[in-house]
Structures are given as C-alpha cells and as structure tokens.
Design a protein around this nucleic acid. Sequence first.
DNA 1: TCAATTCCCATTGACGCCCATAATGTCCCA
DNA 2: TGGGACATTATGGGCGTCAATGGGAATTGA
Lengths: 146, 146
Amino acid sequence: MNRFLSNATNKIDAKGRASVPASFRAVLASSKTEELYCFQDFVFPAVSVGGPDLLERFEQQIARLDPFSPEANRMSLVIHGGGVFMKLDQEGRLMVTDFIRNHTGITSEVTFVGRADHFQLWQPQAYEDMQAAARAELRLGGLGSR
Amino acid sequence: MNRFLSNATNKIDAKGRASVPASFRAVLASSKTEELYCFQDFVFPAVSVGGPDLLERFEQQIARLDPFSPEANRMSLVIHGGGVFMKLDQEGRLMVTDFIRNHTGITSEVTFVGRADHFQLWQPQAYEDMQAAARAELRLGGLGSR
DNA sequence: TCAATTCCCATTGACGCCCATAATGTCCCA
DNA sequence: TGGGACATTATGGGCGTCAATGGGAATTGA
C-alpha cells in the first residue's frame, strides 16, 4: 500500500525523538521523500507532515482563491509562515520540536495518524476524542446508514 | 460462492492469533486479496474487514467533497486515520490486535460474520445478542409476514 | 566552549515464517 | 452401507528478523 493509513502511538525519548511508524517510512521511501514539510492543520489541533508536493498542493489551492480574501491570507500565513521542513534521523526518528508541541499539546507520546497523502501528529488523547467525535458526526451525516 | 457468508467462532491463541474460516479465505483468494482493510463499524460494536476496494469506495465519497472542507477532513480522519491494513499469516490467521479488541470487547474468542462483500469480527456473545435483536426487528417490520 | 543535534551501537520485545499435531470432514472401495 | 485411508482445517509453539527504544560518542553550530 502506497499511502498513509492507520495510526500508532509512540514514545518520545529523553532527547525528544520519536520513531515514525515503519509503514509510514515505507511510504516515504517509495516516493523517495527525504525532506518533510510540516504545518499545523486548519481544523484540528494537529501537525500535518508530508513531502514537498504537499506544499505545492496548498499553493495551488491558494491560487484558486481571491488573493485578497481573508481565507487566502490566513492560508498563506499558515502554509508559508507557519510551515517547517524536517528530516528523519538514520533510524527513522523525528525530533518533536516546540513547534510541534505548541500546536498539539504533545508531551511524552505522539500519535501518528495516516491521512492518505500525508500523516499527522496528535496528542494521543486529543486524537481519541476527535476520532470519536468525527465518527459520531458521520453517523448523523449518513455515511454509515446504508 | 464468491462472497462472505455464514459465521464461525474461533479461538485466539496465546500469541493473539485466530484462524480466519477457510471459506472466507477462499473468497479472499479468488479475488487475489492479500491486504485487508479493517475499520470500526459505524453502528455495531464490530470491526469490518475487506479488501482495498472497500477503502476505495469510501475514498470516492470523500472525493465528492471539497478537499479543504471540514467535512472531508473529518471523514478522512475516520477512514484513513481510523482504519488499518492487516495481513494474514501463512496459515491464514489474523492477529487480533488491541485495535480490534477495543472496539469489539473480544478477549479469547472471535466470531467471524460474513457480510457479502466483507466480513466482520464480533465478540461471540455480542453477536448472538445482536443477531437475536435483528431477527426480532425483522419480524416486527413485516419482512417475514407476507 | 558549551549545548544541541546527529551518528552509531545495543537491547528488548513483537511479529512473521516455519514445522508439528489434533480434530474434523470427505471420499473411495470393499 | 460401513469403515478406513486421506485431505483439510484449526491450533500450538520454536525461532529468526525487524521495529521501537535507549544511551554513549562524535559532530555541528552559535
């Protein structure tokens, strides 16, 4: 499978590192992705991580908006001003920086959440709660009501 | 027969493995399905299991939405973040992970339930109860009363 | 020069591959 | 039609491999 799927919670060690799940690393390797582009999610208290192509996709979306709209402005602020590039170490571990911690509330553990073309970093409990809430919404919205 | 039908209850061994019923494996083999997509059922305390085509069906629903909308974001969180890929071992056994246990209450035995294009994992007693309840509903609803 | 980051190696535990055995069902033939 | 050989399934467990984790040493950079 060549997209990010499922979720896993890993520990952050004394140096602030956390292992990226092997299945996620496999996806990155298959697309030859070395550098990771990170930014905060628009909706959730999470940090999204993907290849440089992810950044390009967002730029295209901004281009489609009215350049003077508050939405385009806000999006650019988050995407360009708020984004960072990161790299994994030799064992496939990610440094959990203050940038990540501040937007997520992550302290000692990270939940990696697959989102098809990218993945996200969540504070474990926040993910649990949001997953349950989103599931309840979908039930009302009719996805599971066939 | 090329769809999942009937049900069977199998033991979970000390390593957390359970044999998938041979008839189900035959269905998987006939469609060349190697990887299994699993997710928490939207209404029942069960985990649904099917081929990647099951995931694609959900993704088509997401594709109909504005990719930057909260709805699409939420649906992806559930479908991508909440789903898992699994593989059977060489003997056709499935690892009963905590993901499965948490959503079903499964402990030492698992009931496999055929649902035509996919199958489900249930805690045996929960399945019995739900089966009986569904049967009663049908009786009231008049399906058998024509 | 000090602190933070990266490299490298060790440890542990989980998982997959392999083989063995028991239980069950099926088929063939007397 | 009964019985027995055979096949298949469900299950148990040994063992090697790899992922996740921890920590010392080297390197970088302010």
